[in-house]
């Protein structure tokens, strides 16, 4: 399976990474090299094998559904690139 340039542009769009036209060809060949390398997985018989999603040898733990932290708005906002009062500021979304 080989990616064409349109697919590379589509992936970049999905990943929210701006890609200039000049970069597409390089990315296309690099991504295809990686996909070509992982292609060998197709030869493994995985019939009846349950997928393994994680390294933890345990069931997922649940915690009490209670507030355990909060009231730290200033700490949360301290790293904001832009803010207006107690809010994160972003470019206008709704006209």
């Amino acid at each position: 399976m080989s990616l064409d340039s349109a697919t590379v542009r589509r992936i970049a769009k999905l990943a929210r990474i701006r890609v200039d036209e000049a970069e597409v060809a390089t990315l296309q060949s690099e991504l295809n090299a990686i996909l070509g390398y992982v292609e060998q997985l197709a030869e493994v018989d995985v019939t009846g094998v349950e997928p393994l999603s994680g390294g933890a040898q345990m069931a997922m733990r649940l915690r009490e559904d209670v507030v355990s932290d909060g009231d730290i708005a200033e700490a949360v906002l301290a790293n904001a690139p832009d803010r207006t009062g107690p809010f994160f500021a972003v470019p206008k979304v709704v006209e």
Binding site: M1, L3, T7, V8, I11, A12, L14, A15, I17, L27, E30, L31, I34, L35, V38, L41, A42, V44, V46, V49, E50, P51, L52, S53
Partner: peptide, 28 residues
């Protein structure tokens, strides 16, 4: 960027089973 894009691709509709799910099975 390369890794985020590869990751986006193998999780995208139509490719999830062929890549990501198969990889998780071989991980098992």
């Amino acid at each position: 960027k390369r890794r985020v894009m590869i990751g986006t691709y193998v999780l995208s509709a139509g490719y999830y089973d062929a890549y990501y799910l198969r990889a998780q099975k071989i991980r098992a």
